[in-house]
Each structure stands twice: as structure tokens, then as C-alpha cells.
């Protein structure tokens, strides 16, 4: 490897190749939670793309926009958004937990307890959500 961080790879024949079945992440609940956390990003991305498609409807007029929103009231979409909400909250909480580990907050020499950090971030999430809701309500016309 030398001093290079990347760009070159070590000799493949010297690498250790552990044999892992494709179902390794189903064998332990912590592995499964890890995969569900990764999966949360899929639900978030789909939600955002659907929302972008809804905004795009405005180019065809406000009626198309509201009609698109009304179509989202079908049971399939409600189930999707329910799952997306659960997954996005799962992402928020796990993100706050890892932030508390990766970027601990220090006051003087003392480190803030991780659970307190996570709790403060959850409080911030609630505060930010209320502010967005108020702004949306004010500006939606």
C-alpha cells in the first residue's frame, strides 16, 4: 500500500477472503437492524422522488398538482408513507446516536453523555419540524 491512501490496491492473492453467505445479515438481530437502517435511505429517496414528481405536476397547472396529491390518499400510498415515516424516524434516531459517538460535545473537559446528546437532537428534530409546519402553513397561500 505504501503511503498512498487509495488509488492502488493490495495484491489480491494476498487478501484474506472470508466466506460469507448472502444471508449473513439475517443471522443476528443487530445485523438485521443494520440492514434496516441502510434500507431506510431507500424509503426516504423514494418519498423525495415522488414529492419531486408532485412538484413537477405544477408545470401542467395547479389542478394536476392537487389531483396528484389526491391520488396519494389511496391505501397503497398511505401504507407506503407510513413505512417511509417509520424508516425516516429510525434513520433520525440512529443518526443522532452515531453523531453522539462520532462528534461528542465537550463542555470544558467533560464530554456530554451520549444519551443526552441523542435526546437534545431529538428535541431539535421536534423543534425544527414545528418550525417547518408553521412556515408551510403561513406560505401555502
Amino acid at each position: 500500500m505504501g503511503s498512498k491512501m487509495s488509488g492502488t490496491r493490495p495484491d489480491k492473492s494476498k487478501l484474506y477472503h472470508p466466506q460469507m453467505p448472502a444471508t449473513w445479515w439475517l443471522q443476528k438481530s443487530s445485523y438485521l437492524l443494520f440492514m434496516l437502517r441502510e434500507l431506510s435511505s431507500v424509503f426516504i429517496a423514494i418519498f423525495l422522488i415522488v414529492y419531486l414528481v408532485q412538484i413537477y405536476q405544477l408545470t401542467r397547472g395547479p389542478e394536476a398538482y392537487t389531483a396528484f396529491a389526491q391520488n396519494l390518499s389511496s391505501p397503497g400510498w398511505v401504507v407506503f408513507h407510513f413505512l417511509a415515516l417509520l424508516f425516516s424516524l429510525f434513520h433520525s434516531i440512529t443518526w443522532f446516536q452515531s453523531t453522539a459517538v462520532v462528534m461528542p460535545l465537550r463542555i470544558g473537559a467533560r464530554e456530554l453523555p451520549r444519551q443526552l446528546m441523542t435526546g437534545l437532537n431529538i428535541a431539535a428534530l421536534i423543534a425544527v419540524s414545528i418550525v417547518i409546519l408553521i412556515f408551510f402553513n403561513m406560505l401555502r397561500g
Partner: peptide, 12 residues
Amino acid sequence: AAFLVPIHILIF
């Protein structure tokens, strides 16, 4: 995603 997405899912 952590701070902004949940409320947008609730609204939209």
C-alpha cells in the same frame, strides 16, 4: 434526512 424529512412525510 434526519432533521427535515419526517415532517415532510407527515405533510405531503
